[in-house]
Design a protein around this nucleic acid. Structure first.
Lengths: 170, 170
DNA sequence: GCCATATTGTCAGTATACTGTCAATTAAAT
DNA sequence: ATTTAATTGACAGTATACTGACAATATGGC
């Protein structure tokens, strides 16, 4: 045995791990979103939920969680907060007493229209430090990776689920 | 005004936003870490903290938060849990009554050595779906982006802060 | 129609994260 | 030396996230 010493642990075990880098970028992305959108009192998660409800009026919570890939448990609280801010309303479904359907209010539609430029600014800022070509490359690889790893998270994205609610009385 | 209609909102406003993609990848990264490391009862955050304490024995909580770029408030709870698992100990500093210095226990060093292969497996799995060349490209761009956006988060990474504790009695 | 199964929303429990605040303590200014 | 400012660890409050469980309700096989 020429060398039986254990490999010394360095911080590179953390700094070069993709998981650590994704965590950092998520922190940075949220910070930039909050900073650019501080006039609107909406978090990134609440924004995504609003967009999905706007795109799929009358969707229910379970479908919504599949469409934006957020945990159903978590989403309950998000919906409560959006309701408290009077950006959405919940109406019980006619043919299924378990289900509550989600709709944007006028105020919700208004805030969604108003916040868009700030959201775009935040999204642009987080890629800003890269050269334009690199931005495209990163976005492309990131999109592929999220798609190819879709099943790995607890709540895989099921965009097509959004259409199911159209069969309801919605 | 040739067209005064508002732009219709689609889910692309969410799906193509880098912030959303980073959130998804973070969810996926944590899920894969937990799955690969379920035998060890360590979260990604706890793992990073253990590595940092191993690399910088006698570091204090504030320095630790700078070294792994975690919020100081959050880190308090993380340290408590690592202490409860008896992977670290806290000793009051001699020359500064406010400070508590952090050290790995034997059990902490052992679990860190044992968990490494599983951590590596998890990190490899999350990039696995990409071609090897694309993995390198993504990792390179991600590393650059995190570095260039360092100041944007509440707790920027300050790797050099780790050296300050060497001036203590530690 | 009845029973096993699945779905829906909800909740309790744990673990990150960030904001803001605080007391104790130390360092800096003068 | 005394006032001022900064640092440290802690805490309360809010907001994601995930696990596992639950009652109410629907649905399927038979």
């Amino acid at each position: 045995m020429p060398n039986s010493k254990p490999t010394p642990v360095t911080m590179d075990a953390v700094y070069t791990a993709p998981g650590y880098l994704f965590r950092r970028m998520q922190q940075i992305a949220v910070a930039l979103f909050i900073e650019e959108c501080k006039a609107f009192d909406l978090t990134p998660v609440q924004y995504a939920a609003l967009v999905a409800i706007s795109t799929h009026p009358g969707i229910d919570a379970t479908r919504l969680s599949a469409v934006i890939a957020f945990d159903r448990s978590t989403l309950g609280n998000v919906i409560e907060r959006l309701q408290a801010k009077e950006y959405i309303v919940r109406k019980p479904a006619a043919e299924d007493k378990r289900v509550k359907l989600l709709y944007l209010t006028k105020a919700g539609a208004a805030v969604l229209g108003d916040i868009m430029p700030s959201v775009d600014k935040a999204q642009a800022r987080m890629l800003q430090p890269l050269k334009p070509g690199d931005r495209k490359t990163l976005l492309s690889l990131l999109t592929q990776l999220v798609d190819l790893n879709n099943e790995a998270s607890r709540v895989p994205l099921r965009a097509e689920d959004a259409l199911e609610h159209l069969g309801r009385s919605g």
